[in-house]
């Protein structure tokens, strides 16, 4: 079981590298779908089957279809050289990100060691258990997100109209 985690972890990292370094947006989008699928497998291994299915259906299914549709609608092609690119972000950004990575690695190493165990016995994370929690303790956030979705739908329709 553990070997699957490492396999799909490497797949996720390679695909994420591909998302960042591909110069054509469609290839980036397809690589992002690979990342999402690999993460869904890892969620399954970590005892979150409901979230894994939501990840595949909503993220890889709905959201990425939207992305690919917009990329093809706008005919987004190869990223050409820029007339006026910001040099500052290119020179300051990567060292800061490297510092972030090292710092976080040190924190994790100090806190949990290299093999700190993740494990408690797996809980019942079936859709029934999640639903019970969602409609009891988290009923207010649930209702608020439904309003958020409604506002987002209206906003998307207004923004994408011909005349802004």
């Amino acid at each position: 079981m553990e070997i699957l985690f490492y396999i799909f972890g490497v797949v996720a990292i390679v695909a994420a590298l591909s998302v960042v370094f591909q110069r054509t947006p469609v290839y980036s989008a397809l690589s992002l779908i690979v990342v999402l699928a690999a993460l869904a497998v890892i969620y399954l291994l970590l005892g979150a089957p409901f979230i894994a299915m939501v990840q595949v259906i909503v993220y890889a299914g709905a959201i990425m279809v939207l992305f690919v549709l917009v990329i093809m609608l706008l005919n987004a092609g190869h990223e050409g050289p820029s007339a006026h690119r910001a040099k500052f972000a290119r020179w300051v950004g990567p060292p800061l990100l490297l510092a972030f990575l090292v710092e976080f690695g040190v924190i994790v190493w100090k806190q949990y060691g290299l093999t700190g165990a993740a494990s408690a016995p797996a809980l019942d994370a079936s859709p029934a258990a999640i639903g019970r929690l969602l409609f009891k303790s988290y009923i207010l956030p649930f209702e608020v997100t439904s309003i958020l979705i409604l506002v987002a739908v209206l906003g998307a329709v207004v923004l994408a109209k011909k005349q802004l």
Binding site: E2, G9, I13, V20, G93, F104, V108, Q111, A117, A118
Partner: peptide, 25 residues
């Protein structure tokens, strides 16, 4: 059993790659 530190490291590597893409793309 998958060590928690390995999962967190995978998470932070993915986050850093996302942030790097945000800067350089």
């Amino acid at each position: 059993m998958i060590p928690l530190s390995h999962i967190l490291l995978l998470s932070v590597i993915l986050f850093t790659l996302g942030a790097a893409g945000f800067i350089i793309r």
